[in-house]
Design a protein around this nucleic acid. Structure first.
Lengths: 214, 214, 214, 214
DNA sequence: CATGAATGAGCTTTCATTCAT
DNA sequence: CATGAATGAAAGCTCATTCAT
């Protein structure tokens, strides 16, 4: 009845342990997948016994769920920042830049997220992805309005979004392949990627003058 | 001599069973990951006992290895077809189309492949990626020559390739996310994606400003 | 109904195959024990499929049983040759020599036999050891008569027999230990053993003259 | 840290369980051999679940290794006690008596040991026999010195040792055969064996012909 | 005769989880 | 709070054996 997970108000020590567990779990889950990870391994990396770990989290799934929730927040950060603007092309390019930065700084989170989707979103409850859905719809509407007003080139907003996600997340999710194929480019990978992607999306999105359209 | 896997020349029944196992294994591996998949589940789906399955494949790893090899062949198909051409922009656009078609027709293979890379390409499977490497280098050199000759817009060949892979594979690998976010678009997903991607890469690659085009 | 094991009259080919199987099985059983040996391994070494092997022998146990029977015959050979004689001491020494020769020439058989006894004679039916029992009793009686007549020194016939068996079989059964402890003596092992053992038993058995026998 | 086998300092319960497991394992290993024994059987006899057993010992091999180590200590006990002495013949006879006592009191250990050697001392366990080697060499040298000084009859020390081992261990290792052949002698088996063996080795080792004795 | 094919039973081991202290 | 102890379930895999051809 005194279990950490039952109380809303946590002591400092409880919060610290929770973070240590999540840090360890992120390492393991992101490099072995949910099924490939064992809570023994996680507890060992977190420097505690497995029963201790399960004192803080009801089950392996609960740890994973919490990690996924946090990852989603990180993931949504750049998207939340995309607002209507005087310069929609640059607004989108900024989104690309921020999204790429997330890949660079949170590659394990990106892989955790990718794995979840790759496996068909099996565990996460519908509800976990709800925030994403409503924000996504809003931003799609925003881009649609930009297109409608001729402020960016005509483009399918959904596929634009998917392209941005794909290209930016690729550098985190497929890092091992990139390392395998072009190890010599790793030093400036994210800088070059930014240059490349921003150029690509800018070229694509700059609207033709109304006279030259078509 | 006694076991199916020992013989080079397979009987009809061996070929059939082998294919049935691989089909079942592709289902399971692509939706559960290597560790998440159990050979019990695979054998059940293939309609045979687990020892029967192991009569045809030495181990779980051997099944996975074979699947990965075949997947790599499929994966390399479009890349192999990319050749020097009078119209390099269209050559690349054709590559994009073919790569997208692979995603549409072999989504499970794509996810198997993605999972492998996401998990960091475990050492055991590394050598399997060797053929990819040499073909990749050749095609990078080809694109470089097109850039050098001014036949396509200046672009970093590596990042162009990564972008193409990312954007085309996304439709297979992140399908569950797409279904979650825009179920109403699933009907024409790949057609729309093709339109979008081909437009994007064409815009990006056409060598000169619009005034000088053609 | 036509199975080889059912018919008493075997064709030449059947006899050959049977021998090949037994030769392979002796190798495996003697170096891995009954449980440690697998019929797959045996059939592979015999150069045939496992079902073929089981065509000639009903089961793993049947192979083992046949091997054990044959081994017993070999084992009994020297004992059978021990007869009443003018010089009982030499008769026993000759038995020692012959028994040692068996160890030298049939070490695998000796180990098979030893393993069976070590494991408590679990499989062999009572009946298999019956011939040994009656011959043993006869020879014990013979030795007893020699002792009674003062033709050899007073000795407990049972324990004399056990000593001879122990010391001669040791060179086959514990060969790996001897190799480990005195590899430099392996070259002349059996010659030295013979010298040593014959001297030991002769010293022990030579009767004191009647006047000196306390 | 979490597992019993990781800690150097064991709790009372750990020591107890460890001993229970080893007791059960000795029963099973000595009567079925390493391969023939299953940890399921061992855990059942020890009154615990198989995972519990594996909580105390990493693997089947580890249990066996520990048993073998302990057995070697018991085995070496009498040999260690053999020292230079005023009466080398009696010293050796005492060794024989002690060795025989070990066979009587630790027959399962003797069979475990014998089985290991019979199977050729699998590589994994080889290093465990190192202590035996050095002690053996020392005692061989001791006996050699006795021979050199004429304090015992000329004898090959290696073969003397092998004879002693063979004859004393025989009563443990081949017990089932003895029971089969002379059940009526089981009551006084070890007492008779001692009489017989001590007489045999004394006769053999007393340095001079009977005329000069004392 | 010979063997490819098939499988139930069993093997060693791992894992997520519970419980008592 | 923390952990030593315990286990049912399931994993990958081996094995002796059967059966149809």
């Amino acid at each position: 009845m005194a279990k950490a997970r039952d109380t809303k108000t946590k002591t400092r020590i409880q919060r610290e342990k929770t973070e240590e567990i999540l840090a360890a779990a992120l390492d393991i889950f992101s490099s072995a997948g949910f099924r490939g990870a064992s809570i023994n391994e996680i507890s060992k990396r977190a420097g505690m016994s497995t029963p201790s770990l399960l004192y803080y989290f009801q089950s392996k799934e609960h740890i994973h769920r919490e990690l996924l929730s946090r990852t989603l927040l990180v993931w949504l950060g750049p998207l939340n920042l995309m607002k209507d603007s005087d310069d929609p092309v640059e607004e989108i390019c900024t989104y690309v830049r921020r999204k790429l930065e997330i890949s660079e700084q949170f590659p394990r989170e990106s892989r955790l997220f990718a794995n979840e989707i790759l496996m068909g979103i099996p565990r996460a409850e519908q509800s976990q992805f709800d925030p994403l859905r409503s924000i996504f719809d809003a931003k799609i509407a925003l881009i649609e309005s930009w297109v409608r007003d001729g402020r960016i080139a005509p483009v399918d907003p959904h596929h634009l979004m998917y392209s941005i996600w794909a290209t930016t997340q690729h550098y985190a999710d497929f890092e091992s392949q990139i390392k395998e194929l072009s190890p010599e480019k790793m030093g400036t990978l994210f800088r070059d990627a930014e240059t490349h992607l921003v150029a690509m999306y800018r070229t694509m999105l700059v609207p033709n003058g109304p006279e030259a359209s078509e």
